[in-house]
Amino acid sequence: MKPVVIANPWAHLRRHTPARIALGRSGISLPTAPQLAFQLAHAQARDAVHRAFDVAATAAAIEALGLPTVTVHSAAADRPIYLQRPDLGRRLDAASAAALQARREAPDGSAQRCDLGLVVADG
């Protein structure tokens, strides 16, 4: 019996490109296997975009190196707001700005003072 899915005889050209060529067809449509492969790739990309930033674990790992951490938050309250308002993602929220300002105003020699800050962020 003739196979339902029509394969493309140029599948060996895939070695030249990561593009999704020679996928074959069911009628004129994408066969099930390449359709699900695409869905998986997009699902993984979506999961990566929306994966929550594990602040506690990241801070603990850094502090294990003997480095103090300060957790701050951008003015974008959550991921949907950040995606629509990247300008807010570039600014601190009020509480974070105040916390950093307090450190800046701490007396010399205080543990609150620092010479160098490294930013670890998502988004």
């Binding site: 493309n8 140029w10 050209l13 895939r14 030249h16 490109t17 593009a19 060529i21 020679a22």
Partner: peptide, 10 residues
């Protein structure tokens, strides 16, 4: 070039 040609053919 070969990669582009493969997609053009496809």
């Amino acid at each position: 070039a070969a990669g582009i040609a493969a997609s053009v053919l496809d």
